[in-house]
Nucleic acid binder design. Structure first.
Lengths: 191, 191
DNA sequence: CCTACCGATCGGTAGG
DNA sequence: CCTACCGATCGGTAGG
């Protein structure tokens, strides 16, 4: 059995290449080179290039869900849960921007079966954020908003992050999430 | 000189293929097949596969800018401009979902020089939406929000549309834009 | 717009 | 994990 660190090095190289060049523009020779071996050697550790993509996508989905699920299921006001869930989301993006990018941008390169599996993981995560909105509307903390569109607005804000947010900039993940959450909660218009 | 309808057929085939399979997963044989010819014949009408991508991206950017610029520069309250600009944006997405998808998803496949050109077109468009927010804040119609993040929230909402909006569904472009705009203007929280 | 084709490169394998 | 390689396919061209 190969040592786990080898597989990890391959995944690390793959996630950065897939994020920066795209899956189809990345060759197995690129991935091998990035993990210090030749392309043939890769196949002692992986089954196929697409397996690598699916591993990255599924693992990223797991990161997001694991970070946000406890907040949604735990105690607290809906507005506060939204703030904390968004902060958790931005933290996951910041911790591995490449993985987030591959998760959100490259799943189309998966085979139909694996695309469906990835979509299920994404749906599960998106439902969590929807639950926060439902909680707020039911409790009266939120206005009786269109819940589908409220969920879409929150999802748009967090799913678009990978396009512009760069960790190490002037704003920490929590500050970014707070600014977006306040805008979503309070709106633009003067009262 | 080739007849314009041939070139249009090639662009039509390319935009759908690029949107649905991605640029790198689309072959020139796919594009040729989709426009009723063989791959070699394509090159009587185009210079390269990448030229086709850039034409699609630049043309989509132009559609968005042309639809929104008159609203931003025209008269009206900022909240109303935001509603109308978002409706115009959704209409452009609805009119050619594939073009919008390629514009937002596939520009990474361009060469560095053309990526820069595409980014400039995108920036110009995004600045237009930012102008509406500035107008609202200056006039006092909007709260003194963080303008950068307010712009990012609006951009996230409209730029994420291509991922979930499907023309021909139950909601017309204007209805979709109105729901999103009201949420952005009024926020989730009860007053 | 087709026929015929090119060199390059692709993902992956066999055998050590 | 390397050497050596495979068949398939890629974007693009020449000559009609």
């Amino acid at each position: 059995m190969p040592r786990p660190t080898r597989k990890a090095a391959i995944l690390d190289a793959a996630v950065d290449l897939f994020a920066n060049k795209g899956y189809h523009a990345t060759t197995v020779r690129d991935i091998a080179g990035g993990s210090g071996m030749l392309s043939g050697s890769l196949y002692a550790h992986i089954e196929s290039k697409e397996d690598l993509l699916f591993e990255i996508v599924a693992s990223a989905a797991e990161q997001f869900t694991a970070a946000v699920a406890p907040i949604v299921g735990g105690p607290g006001a809906a507005a506060d849960k939204l703030r904390r869930a968004m902060a958790a989301h931005v933290r996951v993006v910041a911790a591995d921007l490449s993985a987030a990018t591959v998760f959100l941008h490259e799943w189309r390169a998966l085979s139909p079966e694996r695309q469906a599996a990835a979509a299920a993981l994404r749906d599960r995560y998106e439902a969590l954020l929807g639950d926060i909105i439902t909680q707020g509307v039911v409790s009266g903390e939120f206005r009786p908003v269109d819940q589908k569109f409220a969920r879409l607005l929150v999802l748009s804000a967090v799913n678009w992050l990978y396009m512009w947010y760069r960790p190490g900039g002037e704003l920490a993940p929590e500050a970014v999430a707070e600014r977006l959450a306040v805008l979503i909660l309070q709106g633009l218009e003067s009262p």
